[in-house]
Design a protein around this nucleic acid. Structure first.
Lengths: 141, 141
DNA sequence: GACAATAATTGTCGACGTCAATAGTTGTTG
DNA sequence: CAACAACTATTGACGTCGACAATTATTGTC
């Protein structure tokens, strides 16, 4: 009979939970949660995105995006702008405050990850990251 | 500005979510969820455990254990037996039906994991598993 | 111009984690 | 040995989260 940790998928599930808890812990003081942070991070590379794009790329339901953008707009980190092409759509863009927030929390986020992978030496961390990336985005190969 | 997938911790979080969804998908027909499955798997190696041990080892709140054991007992996969040492405690043991269920779902679980790590060749899967194991249980080194 | 498709939004529902409170039992200590 | 602290399982409450249906406003199509 196979044990609990004999399964890579189950290990991923458990480590994912722990990682999420650590992230939420460090975000606690800012009043945001991991999902807000992920959205901000995505916007930082995208220079503005429609909400349906956020939904597709982050894997959250469109109805979840609404609440997240609401919270971030209230915090002053993003803005909803009308799309010139389609009056149904809103373009969500990072504000200067949002950009500053990301800069300030950058090293804290790194510390969380370092905490997580602490048992590994730098080369192993690199290996792990590369393997996870291939699983996460098979297209990039 | 760092992108979303530059962070190993965030990758773990996202892959953990995906892994959990895949597992819950394959468990759907049995009426159980990932948490039940994890509990059964743990019992398979432990030959009976107190509920507080389940709570500690699986990382679930004691109150969550109650419901999980209720469900599994109703399904006939586990039994609660009185502890001879301490009348407060209950010993949860796997029934024959539970053991059979685990045997029957074993290869389905493996298929889920194979699906997940599909982009990797066998040697890489081995490497990934070993690295994850070191993070999950630093004590085992 | 009727009608299907789409974007954002609202509301609902079940699952889940955390925490406080309780009943029954055990250990401790004065 | 009697009072009291600690522990085990359980119940209940509360907020979060993810999945889904329904609605409104707008766009595309035939």
């Amino acid at each position: 009979m196979r044990g609990l940790h004999a399964d890579t998928g189950y290990l991923l599930y458990r480590l994912g939970l722990r990682s999420g808890q650590l992230f939420n812990g460090f975000l606690q003081e800012s009043g945001l949660r991991l999902r807000h942070y992920a959205l901000l991070r995505f916007l930082a590379t995208a220079e503005g995105a429609l909400q349906r794009e956020l939904s597709a790329r982050l894997g959250y339901d469109p109805s979840a995006i609404v609440g997240l953008v609401d919270d971030l707009e209230r915090a002053g980190f993003v803005e909803r702008r009308p799309s010139p092409d389609d009056r149904r759509s809103r373009i969500v863009v990072l504000t200067d405050d949002g950009r500053t927030f990301l800069r300030n929390t950058d090293e804290a986020g790194l510390r969380v990850t370092n905490d997580l992978v602490q048992p590994l030496d730098p080369a192993e961390r690199e290996t792990l990251h590369a393997l996870l990336l291939r699983i996460a985005e098979p297209g990039l190969a």
